[in-house]
Structure formats: C-alpha cells, structure tokens
C-alpha cells in the first residue's frame, strides 16, 4: 500500500518536472529546434571552412 502511494507521488513529481522543463523550453522559444540546437556543437566537422569569398 505505502509503495503504491510512493509510486503515485513519484509519478506526479515526474509530471511536474516534465511540465517545468517544457515551460522553460517554451519560454526560451527553442522548443521546436531544441534537439538540433543542443546537438549542433557536437556535430562532426566534415569540412574545414574554405577561405572567404573569391574574385576573378
């Protein structure tokens, strides 16, 4: 019985946690690209950037 109550409590805390994280992401306006943006620095650099511009 007490285990069940504890589980319900934990489950509700997880709900609260996920809602808080969502609110933070929505407030920062990055919820649509959060995954991509957060992983961007870890992407493999396959190419060295070429020297800037060229004329002639």
């Amino acid at each position: 019985m007490s285990v069940m109550v504890l589980q319900v409590f934990v489950s509700l805390m997880l709900v609260v946690g996920s809602v808080v994280l969502l609110a933070f992401s929505v407030k920062s306006d990055d919820h649509e690209h959060a995954d991509r943006l957060s992983l961007l620095p870890f992407e493999d650099e396959r190419k060295e950037p070429a020297p800037k511009g060229r004329t002639s």
């Binding site: 489950s11 509700l12 709900v15 996920s18 809602v19 969502l22 609110a23 929505v26 407030k27 919820h31």
Partner: peptide
C-alpha cells in the same frame, strides 16, 4: 513579438497531456 497565445497553448497542451496519461493509469 512573442505570441503569448501560441506559447500558452503549447504549455496548456503539455500540462494536459502529462496529466491525462496519469489519469488513464
């Protein structure tokens, strides 16, 4: 400007979906 209505809708959806899953359990 940040569209508060859009933000609020998404937040409401998040809260509702999270609670709905618990109530279903």
């Amino acid at each position: 400007k940040t569209d508060n209505a859009s933000r609020s809708l998404l937040l409401r959806l998040g809260v509702t979906a999270a609670i709905a899953m618990n109530v279903m359990l």
